[in-house]
Design a binder for these strands. Sequence first.
DNA 1: GATGAATGAGATTTCATTCAT
DNA 2: GATGAATGAAATCTCATTCAT
Lengths: 194, 194, 194, 194
Amino acid sequence: MIKSSKEKGKASKARLLTLAASEFSRRGYHDTKISDIVAAAGLTQPAFYLYFSSKEAIFIELTQAFHNRMRTLIENSLLDSAMEQENVFEHIKTKLKMFFEFLAMEPDLTRIGLFVNPNRAQIRADMVRMVRDNLVKEQQSGYFRSDLDMEFVAECLVSMIEQLTETRLLPGLSSAGHLATQIVDLLLNGMIAE
Amino acid sequence: MIKSSKEKGKASKARLLTLAASEFSRRGYHDTKISDIVAAAGLTQPAFYLYFSSKEAIFIELTQAFHNRMRTLIENSLLDSAMEQENVFEHIKTKLKMFFEFLAMEPDLTRIGLFVNPNRAQIRADMVRMVRDNLVKEQQSGYFRSDLDMEFVAECLVSMIEQLTETRLLPGLSSAGHLATQIVDLLLNGMIAE
Amino acid sequence: MIKSSKEKGKASKARLLTLAASEFSRRGYHDTKISDIVAAAGLTQPAFYLYFSSKEAIFIELTQAFHNRMRTLIENSLLDSAMEQENVFEHIKTKLKMFFEFLAMEPDLTRIGLFVNPNRAQIRADMVRMVRDNLVKEQQSGYFRSDLDMEFVAECLVSMIEQLTETRLLPGLSSAGHLATQIVDLLLNGMIAE
Amino acid sequence: MIKSSKEKGKASKARLLTLAASEFSRRGYHDTKISDIVAAAGLTQPAFYLYFSSKEAIFIELTQAFHNRMRTLIENSLLDSAMEQENVFEHIKTKLKMFFEFLAMEPDLTRIGLFVNPNRAQIRADMVRMVRDNLVKEQQSGYFRSDLDMEFVAECLVSMIEQLTETRLLPGLSSAGHLATQIVDLLLNGMIAE
DNA sequence: GATGAATGAGATTTCATTCAT
DNA sequence: GATGAATGAAATCTCATTCAT
């Protein structure tokens, strides 16, 4: 199967993206060298510049890829109120599970977007905003205590998601479903013994 | 006020440490240049090497300073069970407040220790361990639900502390006391409306 | 005559080696700067690192080049016992002449290998060993006094070769043949008047 | 016993000279740092400059010390023709032995003067000149073959002395007397079996 | 006589990036 | 589409040497 020039180019670019993701996610931005990436891709340094204008450009492309996928997921699935569930708590748990599954799908991209990216605060702010909007709706429907500052709760929830992604989900120590269940149980019911 | 020679050296070292903390905390490790630090301190580059053996060395000195202070705080104060309170919930809130106050005292050092430091996972693990040990004790005393995995809860609590430190405490948006109150309320009582 | 890309690189590396040899041989290791070498080669500093991993690396490459050529000469020519001569004294003189001719061929390399190289003791030990082995053979054949310590004689001979190379051969004051003749006359016949 | 300031200064200078000799002789000129020397002497860097105007200055002082002692030895003892011996061969052997003894007395100074010193060629030229003058006299007295180029012989003898000093005398493998005997035997009688 | 603090000058090395083919 | 050769710009670090006391 002979590839056309165009296809070969696309394949090279894809390979560079994948391998760059792997390097960035393992070593961080500064400790990843263009020479490492192209060597892994079996290419030379000038070839890199056929596809990306700079080291920063490929990094941004990766973080934006993560960001876009996350937004798509949120818009298409998580906000899909058509998704009916027997009760609101199961509903939340399902959404959380889906989100963890998304984060587990492309670990390198996730690590880059959430941990390596120096602008990770922005992505997190996005997550916080959408989580808060969701929570506020449920709160207005009377499911949650009306005295809770949902901005605050959203920030807590997002930080938990990030932390557990780093220490449990990506290392394979806990499944998406398990984490979702644990979080929902803790946050909804609280810690106090009856 | 004339400084002795020895005092002058100590002052120079201290200035370098302070200024390095500021640079590292703002720009991160790689984007901080020795030339920036010494220029800010009114010194030349070789003077830096009178006090630190390398760029890495001063960075490590800063992260260890944070780590040591944190450990000291934990050992001297947070674990001090002599600190009697009317009830366990106030007790927890007080501890949390003290911890936030500690984090707010030296913002640069905190940012370096918690966010810039590539080994921040280790510091976090330390925090998780001590929080968990505390929680387990309270749990055994019957204050908390016995079915909770306290390792998990500790991880959640620590991630919340870190996140809120970054987004609220250090920027001055919330006080230590307010954050402590909010966290305790959320985690202990849960979100569900009665 | 257009050079291919690949040939150009090889030419650059060769130029660097030649010029480095010249600098090292004139100034010694420490007083030779990479900047001198590349300037002489019409290149910039980073180009140096395309071909050699460090300053030490190029120096070692040069000393090993000398060492290898010397070994090759010894194995291919000097030990060649097929080389028949009317008598053993002419034989020795011829070998000595060939060795001096070798040393005179690449003066810079010779100076680096014998005088600049901090490990020159090793090269000299190699020479001593092979000279001794030769002499022992002739001794066993009855040509030389049986009471001579040939290790000692070899060391003397080698030191004479080195000294005369430095003071006479390389400055062009004496020819290889003349030096060989003088040495053989002195060492074989001794100084005593009949 | 309290030392006067002057005495203390002299002692410091002497210590620096001795220790510098040791460092230079072991590591060579460039790899010896002022900081090493003063540290070994229990002093600080500025103290060094009380006694020597530069690194080069102390090195030159050491090489000149060697050179001067050598000249003194030669003038006072080796050229002392009053020193009568039963025969000229014993005479030569004795001189040689004395010279080796001189070289063995202060090994560091010897190594610096003969091997480390970049101007060692000059010292060697001095040695060659005086050896040649001696030999020419003996030659004119009829002890040596009249067809020998005594400049050449002197160069050979000096190179042998240097080599054997480095490989045998200073490492303690051969004594001054033994080396003198071996050299005289080889050079006077030659290698040819009768 | 001696010191602690500091510096001038420079060397090696690295790395993202471009040129010419 | 891809390459070998080369570079601009800079960063870390070293070391002999001096200043002020």
